[in-house]
Nucleic acid binder design. Sequence first.
DNA 1: GAAAAAAACGATTGCGCAAACGTTTCGATG
DNA 2: CATCGAAACGTTTGCGCAATCGTTTTTTTC
Lengths: 332, 332
Amino acid sequence: MTTISEVAKAAGVSVSTVSHVLNKTRYVSPEKVKLVIESVEAIGYIPNTVARSLKLSSTGTVGLAISAISNPYFSDIICAIEAECSKRGLIAFLCDTQDDPVRELELIQHLHQRRVDGIILAPSGDPKKALDYLIRSDLPCVLVDRLSDNRFDQVGTDNVAAIRTLVDHLVTLHHRRVGIILGQPGFATTVERAKAFRAAMTEKGIEVEDNLISDGNRSTADATASTHRLLGLKEPPTAILASNNLAMIGAMRAIRERKLRVPADISVLGIDDFEWADYFEPRLTLMAQPCDEIGRRAADLLIERIGNKRRPRETIRLSPVLRVRESCGEAA
Amino acid sequence: MTTISEVAKAAGVSVSTVSHVLNKTRYVSPEKVKLVIESVEAIGYIPNTVARSLKLSSTGTVGLAISAISNPYFSDIICAIEAECSKRGLIAFLCDTQDDPVRELELIQHLHQRRVDGIILAPSGDPKKALDYLIRSDLPCVLVDRLSDNRFDQVGTDNVAAIRTLVDHLVTLHHRRVGIILGQPGFATTVERAKAFRAAMTEKGIEVEDNLISDGNRSTADATASTHRLLGLKEPPTAILASNNLAMIGAMRAIRERKLRVPADISVLGIDDFEWADYFEPRLTLMAQPCDEIGRRAADLLIERIGNKRRPRETIRLSPVLRVRESCGEAA
DNA sequence: GAAAAAAACGATTGCGCAAACGTTTCGATG
DNA sequence: CATCGAAACGTTTGCGCAATCGTTTTTTTC
């Protein structure tokens, strides 16, 4: 591996001249510039970012600590973050926390050892230790999706609006018995959506039975089981609200297993849009979260904070949009 | 930020003792070990991986240069790579080449500057410059999905088997006029699948009309347009083979726009499975690619090569599996 | 009990680079 | 034609660490 001093030797100049030519950090005469550039080419010199980072104590890297990176919701966010970072000259380390608080803390410490300039985190269901560590270490960090601590910059969906819009839609179609399949317990999104559901229903003058609320669905399999339970009730709901994409897939499985027609026998709607939702039956009525903007804004906020650690915290709630299709019909 | 020498001072030992305690690289008496560990805790020392990397000239990082990172096929592969790397103590930089050869080369050079230990690349449609650079720089690299150059280790799906199985299935159901929606031109997968399709059809004694083969579909929109063209033929195909997930979404859109029933009016099948394929209509007959294993094996191969640059190259073709559902019926 | 070997640890160097600091040259100024 | 200042470049240091080399002390051996 070649070094800057080999270039200097080949060009017959000093290392600082080479450095200044490469970084354009001070005036160098055109002849020497030419010499340096030719030597770089001739030798095949590739600057060593590691050494540069050590000297500058800044790496130009950010850590992405996200759960379930293959979930399309998160992969869209990751894609947007990558794009924005790339545009700003940063590069991202990708880590999957697998929603394990222990792993989450370890990953953050690992990223810290690697001296990332900042971290974008989708907090686990029990993120206290990780978040405390981040605060203590004064590492720039923004939280995405699960907005669980306003000691940080945060970007996510306006879950209250999302649920309220969905409930509005349901009530307009005369649904009163609505079952909800919530996500993983502890997640800020789960908590917010549960609370928003109760509030929105109450606002509509509808009493919410506890057994219509299904919490703790960590997987599509959980969601399937929960949906079976709801549909097996003496008085089953007329509609099912799936509070995320995994819950929806799981719910649809249970509905299929019971050979129910959507929306004739049961109405279905949920949160998280699918690219194919328009082309397959039942065509799902869904709230689309603005994944691209979430990712972009998260990266922007992080870059801002890296630039100024003392700026005021921001929490950004982006509006989701309802895509009315056909899976939610009139209540019987 | 604390350093190893501050720890040494606090513990009343030398920096080398601290280093050896932290890395367990030589015997240190229990008392000094205790002193060091206590000082680390007291000071809140976090080792600096950047400095360590400079000294060791090895960073413990790998670069992931992949296109369309939000495509579920790739995000599954990325997820598997991340998992395997993490298990082996490596961490991955995530980069989206966006299938742009210029960007591809720049990203690889950038990763090289960062002194990644190796690279996993899904080559673009015109990867020559990038691949030549990789060879010249002697950077460990494995190619995934698009197996375009056996100067490298490679891992992907056995596309010949995939297409042959699909064609077998079609012929069993008496389809003879089959339209195929191919992916992006230039991709090794596209080329292989096109060739395999012609070969498999010929093997069955079926002549393939050129206008049933639709190349150059870079997006779902392209695939929709291509499908419209196929369906608008005087003598349209009785079945459509979508050669990847984007092509399938696009094809289904066109089919819906024409209000055709699947499989009554037109049969459909393709490559790339979807998690929801069992629960929505039409239930798609698909070849599932082994994304998890592709990712895992790619990471394994890369780690092997990092360990021994002179080992023989390997090309691994993994078998896909056909999931027969209902979208492909008997030909009219 | 002297020599040798082993045990335990410390001082120092160099990884590749950016930039602070220093030096030389040359034209402008009084 | 001395003096100054600016232009152009070189010398050197230190970022934090691993590990080589070296030192001191203790233990073993005959």
